[in-house]
Design a protein around this nucleic acid. Structure first.
Lengths: 342, 342
DNA sequence: CTGTTAGCGCTTTCAG
DNA sequence: CTGAAAGCGCTAACAG
């Protein structure tokens, strides 16, 4: 068996309480005793046992990240931000992937029971109220990103403004027939669908109306499926309509990339024949020379992480909601190398 | 306080041992008793406590994934594969990111102590022998992916063959001045550099020699840095040489994408003016219409996961090394929509 | 300042 | 088949 705190205590000629104290930098230990203990630890090669420590402390120093698609660049970027600030705080990150719809409830179920992590960060997802309640009861903090939840601390952007930004850019360019396309419409963002997407659409509508352009429902496509493929399909449908759009605002870069592929396959030039604006600014947007609305994905993650950590430490939040800002990135379709971010 | 096994035992009128047995599907419980216990559990809303269970069992049902870049699509793809098979086995996945070189040792240090996970999967990385030794002593299995380690179970591909595949494709196309470029040369793949990269270069050399083409060292560029940017820079350097290559084999798709960007900025057409082959087949390769050598990234992850789980269960491996196969994917530079994988 | 004593909640012998 | 009891290794009062 491994060496335990008892072995150390015996070797150092002290009680286990004292050993525990030096382990946890408790002030009340004389320098001399501390030395002895430290020496014994060193000599025996003692390593504290995480599990025993966890049980005693009733916490794990672990936060779970619940995400719906590990394949989604946006979510991975947010994850990066989370990882970074969590590792600084010496907190472990455990991933809960919700790929299949049916596993969702089961996972949430098992997360709310048994305390598998001390805190939770949910990406692009909206928690059923029963679970919010349950997490609260078990006293495990949850913060939401990419979605402003009425009951949970959230980190988000102003998606209405984002949609407005993208659309008015297109309008400024002279377009009047502008399509709006969106994916992941119903799933996995909870029963009410993709809220950020709905907001982007609101911003889109707002921009159109302000410019005196009527909203043409035949130019709005919302549906589910693999983003890139959907982008391709939607572009195909849209552009073979009797009155096709001259510009498309895609609610995600992946969707926009799919549109670009379709355009390319049809020798439709972007932006000459078809203007296009995406959303997110994933790394490949700059490769593709895609004009897009940049979300501070990394920052969304780190802010969320900061918030759960605060909450886990028993502190209350200075701000329940954290809104981050959006930025329109205009590119010409030949991605300039200067656009590469390191 | 939360409801414990004692409460259940009392409510069901049995001993805690019996409750534990039904919790763990131990056979030796009468159907009747089981029912009573189950009912009590239901009635009280009892949820077993993970930490206590862990302490008793002396294991966490958790595997850690050590990776060097959460920003690297290849590594994320492997991670997806891992996540998938792990979640099927109901094992939690915790991420250890090694972004900064200096944190590497510290992390390994803390991983080998204290048992923060029951098993480890290392992606694109080679463990210092001292740590291999340590993990062995603590009896925590480690499996390596994207690298064949002399001392650890590994999942990998034949990178020499991969390099050969890519290069001979280019030769078949009539090219004789073929460059080889590679990134992440020294870091983070251990003190000996990027082994997969070295092997790809060997395959490259082999193909050239077989075709009777001399190896021109001025056409081989290896270095470190952000892949896309490096691809751009290297292409720039290579193509402004007195005797530029007519084809480039890039050891990763990201690098190749950087090359494409440079080419585009200079109005160099691919493949007409410059042939290009990448490596990995990340999702965006099909978008870019990039010919590449496909690695079964997802499978690499799932195989590795399967292996650690085996090991964690105390079983020995039927095969210490698992070699997966490579495939050349030829594309024309206008990525056809059919190439989109779902 | 420091040793001792209770647990943390569960699994696992060990007797019946 | 089942109850009782003994820890798992550590933290956290509690007396000195």
């Amino acid at each position: 068996m491994a060496v335990t705190i008892y072995d150390v205590a015996k070797a150092a000629g002290v009680g286990i309480g004292t050993v525990s104290r030096v382990l946890n930098d408790n002030a009340n230990v004389s320098a001399q005793t501390r030395r002895k203990v430290l020496d014994a630890i060193e000599a025996l090669g003692y390593k504290p046992n995480f599990m025993a420590r966890n049980l005693s402390r009733a916490q794990l120093r672990t936060v779970g990240v619940v995400l719906s698609y590990l394949t989604n660049p946006f979510q991975v970027a947010v994850l990066q931000g989370i990882e970074q600030t969590l590792s600084q705080a010496e907190i472990d990150l455990i991933i809960f992937n919700l790929d299949s719809q049916d596993r969702r409830i089961a996972l949430l179920e098992s997360l709310s029971e048994g305390r598998r992590s001390d805190g939770l960060i949910v990406i692009s997802f909206s928690l059923p109220t029963t679970f919010i309640e349950r997490f609260r009861r078990y006293n495990i903090p949850v913060v939401v990103t990419d979605n402003q939840d009425a009951h949970l601390p959230s980190v988000f952007v102003d998606n209405i403004y984002g949609g407005y930004l993208a659309t008015s850019h297109l309008i400024r360019l002279g377009h009047r027939r502008i399509a709006y396309i969106q994916d992941h419409f119903k799933a996995p963002n909870g029963p009410d669908g993709n809220w950020p997407g709905l907001d982007r659409r609101r911003g889109y509508t707002k921009a159109l109306l302000e410019a005196g352009i009527d909203v043409d429902l035949s130019l709005i496509h919302e549906g589910d499926g693999h983003s890139r493929r959907r982008g391709w399909e939607t572009a195909s449908a849209l552009l073979s309509q009797p009155a096709p759009p001259t510009a498309i605002f895609a609610a995600s870069d992946m969707l926009a990339l799919g549109v670009m592929e379709y355009a390319q396959s049809q020798a439709i030039r972007i932006p000459q024949d078809l203007a296009l604006v995406g959303f997110d600014d994933i790394e490949l947007a700059s490769f593709a020379g895609l004009t897009t609305v940049r979300q501070p994905m990394h920052q969304m993650g780190s802010e969320a992480a900061r918030m759960v950590v605060e909450l886990m430490n028993g502190n209350s939040l200075t701000e329940h909601y954290r809104e981050l800002s959006l930025e329109l990135i205009v590119r010409n379709s030949s991605g300039t190398p200067q656009a590469i971010r390191s």
